[in-house]
């Protein structure tokens, strides 16, 4: 078997084995979404308007908080050091690790989001656009979250810090993602927003692994 495929599968298995890390973001995502109707007059018309924003902000927070400790264990156990010393590409390793983590943590959020759509009276006909947007957006957000995790890998408590570092960086993803769903719900053309989101997706996936591997090296060089 190709060693990279083997690496990917072992990463997948490792994250799956730590079920807590998989379930926590999912529960967080669902609970936070349920709080919004409770905090206001739950009129369907109002809920429909805020639904994409709530779901997108919620996804962002769940992703960033869930990814905060992505490299922590590898760092503490010295695995990371082996990766850096190894002659094979650190970028590719980082890429596969983030994708495997995304599969285990973010994909369940996307699968769960139709329930939130029902709770928030979001029109079902716009569901497809919301899901495509989330699919593109969560991958991009995962890479940004992994960058935050890499920058703070040697710190003990970093959840809040990662959020502060990355939420401003991630605002364009939020804007295009949430608005593609809003436009679809208003029976307008969501394509421009989706295309722009896809641009950010490719930009993030292409550039951020390099930044992540540089950030990981920093924690060892000092």
């Amino acid at each position: 078997m190709n060693p990279w495929i083997r690496f990917f599968r072992s990463e997948l298995g490792l994250s799956w084995r730590e079920r807590r890390r998989v379930l926590l973001p999912l529960v967080f995502f669902v609970v936070v979404a349920a709080l919004f109707p409770l905090a206001m007059t739950p009129r369907p018309a109002t809920l429909r308007l805020i639904a994409p924003g709530v779901i997108w902000v919620d996804v962002m927070l769940a992703t960033f908080l869930g990814l905060e400790s992505l490299f922590r264990q590898d760092y503490e156990e010295g695995v990371l050091e082996q990766w850096i010393l190894s002659p094979s590409s650190l970028e590719l390793r980082v890429f596969l690790k983030v994708i495997s983590f995304w599969t285990v943590t973010s994909l369940p959020l996307i699968i769960m989001s139709p329930i939130l759509v029902l709770w928030l009276s979001f029109p079902v006909r716009a569901l497809a656009v919301l899901l495509v947007g989330l699919l593109l957006g969560t991958v991009a957000l995962s890479f940004l979250g992994a960058l935050g995790a890499a920058l703070t890998v040697s710190l003990r408590e970093s959840g809040m810090l990662v959020a502060i570092l990355l939420l401003p960086v991630a605002t364009p993803i939020l804007i295009f993602g949430a608005h593609s769903a809003l436009l679809a719900a208003a029976r307008e053309n969501p394509r421009p927003a989706l295309y722009l989101l896809a641009t950010l997706f490719f930009l993030t996936v292409g550039l951020v692994p390099k930044a992540i591997s540089t950030a990981l090296k920093v924690s060892y060089e000092a």
């Binding site: 960058l147 920058l151 570092l165 930044a211 540089t214 920093v218 924690s219 060089e221 000092a222």
Partner: peptide, 13 residues
């Protein structure tokens, strides 16, 4: 030094 380098990466991003 770690802080400097980490923040530098953030500044470039």
């Amino acid at each position: 030094q770690t802080g400097d380098r980490a923040a530098a990466i953030l500044a470039l991003v």
